[in-house]
């Protein structure tokens, strides 16, 4: 039966080949090249390279603005994961019921529409909503007698405003993923529970949520990765300000690499970010594995 086994192995490699070749050519190899840069200083015009060892890393580690950006990024992640995955799950569970067809279409569309629009446009539009004295949101708040909220103009509010926009923009993605996962919950389980008189809350927590738990873990990981890379929305909404209040690590990286023309330092900060992402994800998987083992025990 060796031929069968060889056939399977050969098929395995052939099926992977197209995706992996593309991945290698357009992501992995450029990534390795960029990583090499983190140990170098490069002249942008002559494309000449001086190897400087760990100097770029020393600079990044000793730069307080990097650590501010680092802290901001983790604040953003924790809030945006809770907002996106948490609210996304709530909305998906709410949508997962007998809703008249046209209304269901409308709801899905409404919650998913922001996902479809370019962040560049979304941020542009939200700037008008958020403007402190002349913005649309504060205009209506004033009509209600609520004083102006400094959405983007105070350090304490700016990141919250960025997160609100992020949840508005991305929540629909998680709604759709959760909805697709909820379709997989066996209907007969739910019907049987309903016939046994189980309250909807019990059906929810004992059947639906446990059934889609792996998808929830996936969404948390995905939202974490997205959060670690947050860039476009902050760039257009606040440009990292006021001060450094909303500066993310990727913004710091782009600032060093492109605005300051210091590709090496930019690449070094990105490498630190990459290692951190890997660590955070490993922790998440570790926690999930630990919980699974405990449940079984």
């Amino acid at each position: 039966m060796a031929t069968l086994r060889t056939r399977e192995i050969r098929a395995g490699y052939l099926f992977i080949l197209p995706a992996y070749a593309l991945y290698l050519a357009f992501l992995l190899i450029p990534l390795i090249a960029a990583m090499g840069l983190s140990f170098a200083q490069m002249d942008r015009l002559s494309w000449t390279i001086d190897w400087v060892g760990g100097e770029n890393f020393d600079w990044v580690f000793s730069d307080p603005r990097f650590w501010t950006a680092f802290g901001n990024t983790f604040y953003f992640i924790s809030m945006s994961v809770i907002g996106n995955v948490g609210l996304g799950l709530v909305v998906a569970l709410a949508l997962d019921r007998a809703i008249p067809g046209p209304l269901l279409y409308f709801f899905r569309l409404a919650y998913f529409l922001p996902v479809l629009v370019s962040l560049a446009f979304v941020s542009f539009i939200w700037k008008f909503l958020y403007s402190t004295d002349l913005g649309i949101i504060n205009y209506y708040l004033r009509q209600l007698g609520i004083p102006n909220v400094p959405w983007l103009t105070s350090s304490s509010m700016a990141m919250i405003s960025v997160i609100i926009m992020d949840v508005w923009k991305n929540m629909g993605f998680f709604v759709i993923i959760f909805l697709a996962a909820l379709q997989g919950v066996p209907r007969n389980l739910i019907e049987a529970a309903a016939i046994d008189g189980a309250r909807p809350w019990v059906v929810l927590t004992r059947i639906k949520v446990p059934f889609i738990a792996p998808v929830i873990v996936f969404c948390i990981t995905y939202a974490t990765i997205g959060g670690l890379q947050v860039f476009d929305s902050i760039k257009i909404l606040t440009n990292g300000g006021p001060g450094d209040a909303t500066r993310s690590v990727v913004m710091y990286m782009v600032g060093e690499a492109f605005d300051l023309g210091d590709l090496g330092t930019g690449a070094a900060s990105a490498l630190i970010l990459l290692v951190t992402i890997g660590f955070v994800i490993a922790c998440q998987f570790g926690i999930v594995g630990f919980m699974r083992r405990r449940r079984k025990a």
């Binding site: 103009t153 105070s154 350090s155 440009n239 300000g241 006021p242 001060g243």
Partner: peptide
């Protein structure tokens, strides 16, 4: 720009 944004706010 960064310093002005924190001072003026």
């Amino acid at each position: 720009g960064r310093y002005l944004s924190t001072y003026f706010n």
